[in-house]
Design a protein around this nucleic acid. Structure first.
Lengths: 226, 226
DNA sequence: ACCTGAACACCGTTCAAGT
DNA sequence: ACCTGAACACCGTTCAAGT
């Protein structure tokens, strides 16, 4: 707080009083730009031109602000129609969730760790498990749901965190990979080639989701022989 | 530093001078107990009864100490024999890696984010990709390798981070789940039942690894029709 | 070569007041 | 009800010295 030009209570400076909504709006903007782990309570306060304690007064501690932001973002995730075939249902969910979550780095991590406490996530969870029960997964429906969701959410989380790495770490890794391109260790060379091909890694998310769905399909066939 | 009883240079107190090895030993112990993110440079210094700057002198900054610890742990991961069938090779790797990595929380995360810079990880990578090439995955071997490794490493990383959550967050989640056990939303109720069954979640890691291997197997069959 | 000690620029959070 | 301002107990890291 304490801008050089204006001092004293907001209301005396002709500004509207802060509300939880205004604070979470600002936190959401900061998250879009720097990720959930990329701002601090003190920076959020500076952004709002208020004291850090005002945030505590209106919203709560750091975890409470994180939850408020995550809540909003998760509510924008798609929840496909229950009538869909289970394979389409999960493909649509996981491919649709990616752009939403990637626009707010760190929210995927929040969802993985604290998922079962936000209502819009519960709606997806309930429907997803029911879709699997209907498909014939029986008692394994919750495990299959977990393995499919993990395949998507954990991957998004790892993209978020790789982006947050320092630029120097990233160039170190890229340089190391470059050197392996012609390595006599042929497996390593193939991996370096793949990772360094521009855009070569982009379709990987959809590829991984497809493998996860295939893995579940194999299990379904095992559960219903002949 | 500065114990109440003894002061002044270590050497004058009859103690051996610190070395990089001794410092990393202590960091490894702290990691086993609290995880990589669970200690600070200042706490490590207190543990060693020295000033934080001594760590910088012998090893480097926080990232350097992390890398030194991760390096040691990763070198203890199993690297199965190249002659194995690809399914056995990855099953053995991923089931064998879990206890090693879980004993040092946070190392799985380090490996996911900075993997390709530690030699013992490169050995596994090279061999794994070659095993897949030999099995017939061709140009997709690097992508299949990534999807299989992710299935294991990201899951271990999520276990580590869930453990690190505050006790209050964890009881909040458990309580929420308890309430859903008899929920009319049948999918949600099935998930709550599954998550709350004691030990019910333990076999999940091996289950998820098996699904990932199955998914790769399906792709292999697609690549080599009839 | 190895270590001391102070300092800088940060954190999240709490508390006692003010209007 | 809303905000001010100071304080507490932390961080990682740097720098100038000392022996």
């Amino acid at each position: 707080m304490s801008s050089a030009t204006e001092r004293g209570p907001r209301v005396l400076r002709g500004e509207t009083p802060l509300t939880p909504e205004l604070i979470v709006d600002a936190a959401e903007r900061l998250t879009a730009e720097h990720g959930l782990a990329g701002w601090t309570i003190r920076k959020l306060a500076t952004e709002l031109d208020c004291w850090p304690t005002v945030i505590y007064h209106h919203v709560g501690d750091r975890a409470a602000v994180h939850q408020a932001v995550a809540d909003r973002v998760v509510s924008r995730m798609p929840c496909p129609e229950e009538e869909l075939d289970w394979r389409e249902w999960f493909t649509e969910l996981l491919l649709g969730a990616r752009p939403v979550l990637r626009a707010y780095p760190g929210v995927a991590r929040w969802l993985v760790l604290r998922g079962p406490i936000v209502p819009s996530a519960l709606r997806i969870l309930d429907r997803g498990v029911r879709v699997l029960q209907r498909a014939g997964f029986g008692a394994e429906a919750p495990m299959i749901y977990s393995s499919l969701l993990n395949a998507g959410m954990l991957l998004i989380m790892s993209y978020d965190e790789r982006d947050a790495e320092s630029a120097s770490t990233k160039t170190t890794i890229t340089e190391a990979l470059g050197a392996y391109r012609d390595d006599e260790r042929t497996g390593l060379a193939a991996m370096a080639e793949y990772l360094l091909t521009p855009g070569g890694t982009e379709p990987f998310y959809a590829y991984a989701v497809q493998r996860a769905v295939d893995g579940a399909q194999t299990r379904l066939a095992e559960l219903h022989p002949e």
